[in-house]
Amino acid sequence: MLKYIIRRLFMLIPVLIGVSILTFSLIHLIPGDPARSMLGEKATEAQLESLREELGLNDPYIVQYGRFLGNIVQGDLGESIQSKENIAEQLLYKLPATVELTIFAMILAIIVGVLAGVIAAVKQYSWFDNISMTGALFGVSLPIFWLGLMMIWLFSVVFNILPPSGRLTSGMELTTITNFYLLDSLLTGNWAAFKDAFSHLLMPGLALGTIPMAIIARMTRSSMLEVMRQDYIRTANAKGLRTRFVVFQHALKNAFLPVLTVIGLQFGLLLGGAVLTETIFSWPGIGRYVYLAVLGRDYPVVQSTILIVATIFVLVNLITDILYKYFDPRIRFD
């Protein structure tokens, strides 16, 4: 098992080299002069030349790539062209914001999705099954931005019970350690900040979690229906075990594998794709960061963020693969 994890971590290296080549090439694949495309039509030749010099665009590609890679390995992701801020420092703040939101959204999606899927399968064709699966169909079809705006309108404007944007109410004191606000507030015993951060998470978490929740619910239901017909479920019933035990232990553990695959994929997608949610709720995460960088042709930011997201994506896949073994002992890693 440990050997497998180490081997998989080593396999990460070629993947990341591939990603780094792609992100590096990004800047050179755009037609025309990168410096011009960054600075725009009005830039003077002197400005362009100084930017080329600054970015090292005059060196041979291989030298440029070597420098790019060397910097990354040392943790230096360069600075933003627009704001001149250090990108690594920015990510240290923005990445936890996105990860916190994603984890929250996924936990919500998994709990509700799996539970709804299991009940819908056990009580197939019941009112619960019909309502929850219709809901799930809506869930996968609803545009997130519409859902987000509706939630803001309902919970912030009409009822005024949830904050519409940001991670914390301004003026709320919080000593940051990890930049995961829920974690930080717990670590520092700051209950007021925890409640505040939690209420800020609710709406964006729900908006972001809706699609995965719906997909997980549908996947769990169909997988459970398949498993509930198996001979070993009949055996478990014949043993005189409680129905709840049969469903949640015997059936769910077998049915969970395809659900786990979906969870892993969705988790990765959310990490990189929270752009809409973060924009609507003004969430200071990497989704919005990269979105603004693309608009502003801030290539160093785009490059670094993609690299980080790709790394996380690969790591999430690795964790998913390792979890497979827990759910199905027949899976062998060698």
């Binding site: 019933n237 075990l241 015997h250």
Partner: peptide, 25 residues
């Protein structure tokens, strides 16, 4: 009935390949 099943009256099924849960020891 649950207390009778598996205790007083128990059952062995046809296909031992599929009658045991594959994910438990």
């Amino acid at each position: 009935m649950r207390n009778i099943r598996g205790k007083e009256i128990s059952m062995v099924f046809q296909d031992p390949m599929t009658s045991l849960n594959p994910v438990f020891t």
